[in-house]
Amino acid sequence: MNEQRFVVSDVLWQRFEPQLPGKASDAGVTAKDNRLFLEAVFWRVRTGSPWRDLPPMFGNWNSQFRRFRRWAKSGIFESLFKAMSGDPDLEYALIDGTIVQVHQKATGAKGGPQAQAIGRSRGGLTTKIVALVDALGNLTRFLLLPGQAHDMKGVAPLIRNVSFGALLADKAFDADWLLEELDVRGASAVIPPKSNRKQQRGYDADTYKWRHLIENYFAKIKEFRGIATRYDKTDCSYAANWNLVAALIASR
Results as ranks from 00 to 15, higher is better:
His103Pro: 03
Lys128Gln: 15
Val245Tyr: 10
Arg197Ala: 06
Lys110Ala: 07
Ala93Asp: 12
Tyr208Val: 04
Arg120Gly: 02
Asn241Tyr: 13
Trp61Arg: 05
Asn60Gln: 09
Tyr231Met: 09
Val29Glu: 03
Gln4Trp: 06
Ala156Cys: 05
Asp170Ile: 03
Leu182Pro: 08
Leu38Met: 10
Gly108Asp: 13
Tyr92Asn: 14
Ala205Asp: 00
Asp206Cys: 03
Gly48Asp: 04
Phe42Gly: 06
Arg70Met: 04
Asp235Ser: 13
Asn2Gly: 04
Glu3Gly: 09
Thr207Phe: 05
Arg15Tyr: 01
Leu20Ser: 13
Ser49Ala: 15
Phe58Ser: 07
Ala131Trp: 01
Asp176Asn: 15
Trp177Pro: 10
Gln19Leu: 15
Trp177Lys: 11
Ala24Trp: 05
Leu139Lys: 14
Gln148Thr: 03
Gly111Glu: 11
Tyr203Ser: 00
Gly154Val: 12
Ser188Gly: 02
Gln199Tyr: 12
Trp51Pro: 08
Ala106Glu: 06
Asp151His: 01
Asn60Pro: 08
Asp96Leu: 09
Pro192Glu: 02
Cys236Met: 09
Arg120Tyr: 14
Thr140Gln: 06
Lys209Trp: 05
Gly154Tyr: 11
Gln199Phe: 11
Asp134Met: 08
Ala31Lys: 07
Lys171Glu: 00
Pro193Met: 08
Ala172Tyr: 00
Gln4Cys: 05
Ser85Cys: 06
Ser251Leu: 02
Gly154Glu: 07
Trp71Asn: 06
Asp151Glu: 15
Val130Gly: 03
Ala172His: 02
Thr126His: 05
Ala109Tyr: 11
Phe68Pro: 08
Ala219Asn: 13
Ile76Ser: 03
Pro192Ser: 12
Leu167His: 04
Thr229Arg: 13
Trp210Leu: 08
Phe16Val: 00
Leu178Gln: 05
Asn34Phe: 10
Leu144Tyr: 12
Pro192Phe: 12
Ser49Cys: 08
Lys128Val: 02
Leu244Arg: 12
Leu144Asp: 04
Ala246Pro: 03
Gly22His: 01
Pro88Leu: 05
Ala240Val: 10
Ser251Cys: 12
Phe218Met: 08
Phe58Val: 03
Lys222Gly: 07
Ala93Lys: 09
Ser74Ile: 01
Tyr231Cys: 06
Arg67Tyr: 10
